[in-house]
Amino acid sequence: MDVLPHSNCENCQHFNADGLKKLGVDTTDFDFVVALAGNPNTGKSTVFNALTGLRQHTGNWPGKTVTRAEGAFQYNEKKYKLVDLPGTYSLLSTSDDEEVARNFILFGKPDVTVIVVDANRLERNLNLVLQILEITDKAVLCLNLMDEAKRNNIEINIRSLAKDLGIPVVPASARYKEGIPELIQTISDVASGKIICKPHRIKNIPKDIEEAVKILSLKIKKEFPNIPNSRWIAFRLLEGDNQIIEALESGVFV
């Protein structure tokens, strides 16, 4: 497996501080699109601000960011457009926020999706992470709020988490700008293909459903050989998601 679990020191050497330029709202001519997803109140906007130098509204309220915000940064000659998505608990329902987030990850085809999670509430956050990993295979987990986790005596084995999820994991305290250089380096490694992810697939599903999903996703794969998320589309079809059915019919996925 090609996943490199990162700890702080490993990356300090890689990171090229001179190569970083925060570009604010200037999102023209970008090379890569990076989406910021995650549960509400995990610090996505704080990470966004740290990366772009902007001052998106943050707040200790689940659901602060409602529409998506965009910004950009440049690192080692490449320009990255960053999109701050509204926080959601899941992508399986149909509320407006979820639609914005889901549609962007699914149809916006970001080059990297950074999933910002709260290290103190890992289990709940993984619910969303596992769903995103069914949709995209280019993702980075930003394990935010590490300072609070430390205060709460929560210790996380980064290596094992990265191995289980199949994507790089970067611990951070975005508010204090800790872990941001490592995050930038990792984003650039995933975007350039230096790190290949092998994302976790949901396992604990009843047999009859697994069976149905398998049949459907094989058929979908045959029709759309290039998509990474045939299994997820199968989930949505079984749920009767009209938006996905329409998308299939209109051929957005090709």
């Binding site: 608990y89 899941s90 329902s93 709940r124």
Partner: peptide, 11 residues
């Protein structure tokens, strides 16, 4: 409906 799905999402 939404109420049920939200409860499931929340764990």
């Amino acid at each position: 409906g939404d109420s049920r799905r939200r409860l499931l999402d929340l764990g």
